[in-house]
Structures are given as C-alpha cells and as structure tokens.
Nucleic acid binder design. Sequence first.
RNA 1: GGGGGUGUAGCUCAGUUGGCAGAGCAGCGGCCUUUUAAGCCGAAGCGCGCGGGUUCGAGCCCCGCCGCCCCCA
Length: 469
Amino acid sequence: MSFQPPYRLDVDAHVADLVDAYAGLEDGEETDRVVTVAGRVMLLRDQGKLAFATLREGDGSEIQLFALSKVLDGYADFVGLNLGDWVGATGTVVKTRRGELSVKITSFVHLAEARRGFGDKFHGITDTDIRYRQRYADLWANPESAVVLRTRSRIMSLTRRWLEDREFIEVETPVLQHVASGAAATPFTTHHNALDVDLKLRIAPELFLKRLVVGGFERVYEIGRVFRNEGISTRHNPEFTMLELYQAYADYADIMTLVEELVAHLATELHGTTTLPYGDRELDLSTPWRRASMVELIEESIGVRLDVGQPIDEVRAVATEHGVEVEDSWGQGKLILEIYEKTTESSLWGPIFVTDYPEEVSPLSRSHRELPGVTERFEAIVAGRELCNAFSELTDPDVQRARFEDQVRQKDAGDDEAMPLDEDYLRAMEYGLPPTGGLGIGMDRLVMLLTDTPSIRDVVLFPTLRPEQ
RNA sequence: GGGGGUGUAGCUCAGUUGGCAGAGCAGCGGCCUUUUAAGCCGAAGCGCGCGGGUUCGAGCCCCGCCGCCCCCA
C-alpha cells in the first residue's frame, strides 16, 4: 500500500523555543515536559538499539531526536527514514549524556517522503543552477540561503511598519499600463484579448502614485514588482521589487533625510548597528550621509569643473577625452551624466547622496530653486551601487509637457529608453499637484546590502532563468 | 556582444606525461545501547555537457556548439 500521511498534526512546540528554554539542562538530565515537534530529518545515526536523528524546522533551528528501541513504537520504521523526510515526533525534553539537547521520543508520524535527497549532507548543493532553479531544495541544503531570504521578508515588514508609523498609506496601482512611463527603461509588452489592445508591464509605479497625490493621498507608497526588458546580471533581474513613496509638502532634502533614517533603522533592527560588513569592505550607514552634487564629484574625480551652461563643444571634448562615445543629439546635461557614469560613479562607495542631476536627463524632476539647468534630484550610492532615485517632483503641467516632448524627441533620435508622453498624467497635473517629494528604492539591492550578498539572485526567491534544457 | 572560469555517479569532488573511469556522502542489504558530517561490512550506480577531428588508443589534445558563474560593453 502506498504511503498514507496523516491529514494534520498538532505541533505544540517550536525547536527554537526549546533550544532557548532548555539551554541550561545538565548533561544526562531528563525533564517531564512532553512536546510534539515537526520538521525534516536531516541526519540519522542508527546505533542498533538506539538512534539519533537531527530534526530541522524550516527556520533552520535544529534539535536531536533520541530514539530507544525499548521506548519508541515503530523503532524499525524510524531508523528506516530517509534523510529529508518530514516527521512529527512526540517525547520528553532531555539532554543526552554527551550534552546534546534532545527529544526522547515515544512516538512519531511520517509526514512526507523525500524521494529526492538534499545533496551532500556536509557540502549541501553548491551548483548555482540547481540552487536557483530548485530553491525548495536550496533552502534546506544551504541554510544560509534560507537566512537571507527570510531576512528579506523581515526587511519588507520593517519597512512597511516604519512607513505606516509616519502616516504613509500603502496602495496598489496598475501593473498593466497603456503607457509605460516613469523611468528610462524598455517595457515588456503583452496583449489584452477582449479590448484587443497591447498593454505594457509597468517599469515604475511613479506616475500613478503622483496621480494619487493629486487625489489627496498626501503620503502614499507602493511596494511592488516592476518589469524591465533588459539584461540579466548580478545586479539586474527582469522583474524586481521597487518601493516608491510620495510625500506632499516635502522636497528632496526631506527625502534624503527619510532615506538615511530608514536605512539606518533597518540596519539597527537587523544587526543592532549601522556599521556593516559588505564583501571585503565596511559600510558605515550612520546618519547623516554625505551630500555632494554630480559636478562636484566629477571635479573630485577628474579635476575638471563642468556646468550645464558651458559651451557644448567644451563638454564634448571632456567626454571624448575620458572615453565616452558621444552622440550628436546629446546636450550638455546628457554628456555630463555620461561623464559621471564613466569616470566617477564606480569609484564611489558611499553612502552618499549624489545631487543636482541635469534637467535633460531628469524629465520628472523639478528644476533647482537656485542652479540653472539642473534639477532637485538625487541618487544614493551605497556599497558602490545605486540604491535609490528621488526628487522634488515637477508640479507644473506646462513644464512637464515640454519635458515629455523633449523625451519624445530623444526617442525619435534613437534613444529607446526615453520616456513616452503620458497624456492622462498631464491631465491629472492640471488638477494641481502640490509640492511633493518622491522616492524610488530598489528593494532587492537594499536587501543585498543589508545581508552582505553579492548577487541579486541570492535575494530573489525564484530569479529569472533561461528555460531548462 | 567581448574576455576569463567551469561542466566527470542523485550531491560534493579527484582523475598523474592520452593507456581498460574513481572516492566520500546519499540510496539499497547487514552489524552496533550515547551518536554529532557517527562507525564498520557488502552489493549496486557514471562512460565523463553535445557534435566532429587527431590517434593503435581521448575524461585528458584540436575545432565547433550548448549550459552555468564572474568581469566588461
């Protein structure tokens, strides 16, 4: 007869709690506390008339099951278990003579067979292809994978709580959009049969969230998946999780404060400190973070002070001198951004707020209150990577229309990632968008930095992969 | 798209100057009253990513392709 597992089981103790509660038992001491625990048998040491098994719960906590043939009903079945099998076990909490906290079991139930093994019981599974494709196996074979991915859940939860404590409300906006705008990226296209229209998967929730600010949601955020049809690397997955928030009556300086406080809060909650290891370096997330403008940082890097107002030939010359492949359609702003990315960005470790991006490359940002040609926009670089993008939002519909039209010109000139014009968003702005600060954070990258993880695939449960075989 | 690394049993890996494919673990059979990656005995399992080529002979050499990892564009 085939294996017939029970339909349910009353589990009355978690391994982690038992480990905490009974750490002080003496070697050989037995309690009369009866517990039922459950998990997978990860190791089994059969001694003949007695056996020891290592039971692991999904959170990684482990306790030994101590089975005596004289005491345990079904002893023969117990020692016949395969590594990886799910069991429930009932018995008393004891510490063995050799000092291992155990449940001395009087009965057990076989809950599921592991027809496939979890790999080498010492080395686990190291083949990345198996780890990413069969995450369900990786989570058991490599407990450190499970720790990172569970920490991700914790980060999402802490972030939501922190924002809600500050009166932000969470919303959900469309993933399927007629116009995929709000970022410079190539969208995925799909088709709706009943309407017979092509739809895009969102590349950012930005424009919908700002519509909500127009609608009176003064502090609003969304944590959701966005999709960008571009390459895959250690820092890019085609679908990733973005936090965007908008705060009415705030500007980009307020948002800088919000970002550094949020990140420092998360670090403190998770690790008890704002000084974290990342790779072979250290990361000091204590506030405040340095603020410096893009042109200042370029000057520090290459010794040349650039300005969007200077003659374009001079900026082109600097770009060419530093190996930037210049296109004729680029103005000073785009050239300066390219020079920054080529010469400066990779040398930044951070945390640092890079501020005052050129208008030409910032179609949704409000112009700087003092400096001509640049916007009140910043990106944070943390651990050498771009973490977020934020600005004082552009609120003037006429200026926004002009910026969109400029983007369309750039698209026509061959820039595939230039932003399309969103007519409905302009209509929304005509109802009045108050002064607003906005932010987008790549949550996957935030998890990477808080878990000291080098690849985005290690913080995404099921990363996008080529189809098998 | 370019460069580097890698692909041998279910898993982790070793395979010397080209000369009948190996180990540990898992799985299977057996022994064992305090194990900790338990130990011991036994049987079984891969024809070496795929396709060509050189050679008496290729896991090792050559060519092409494919997958995975890393770096760069």
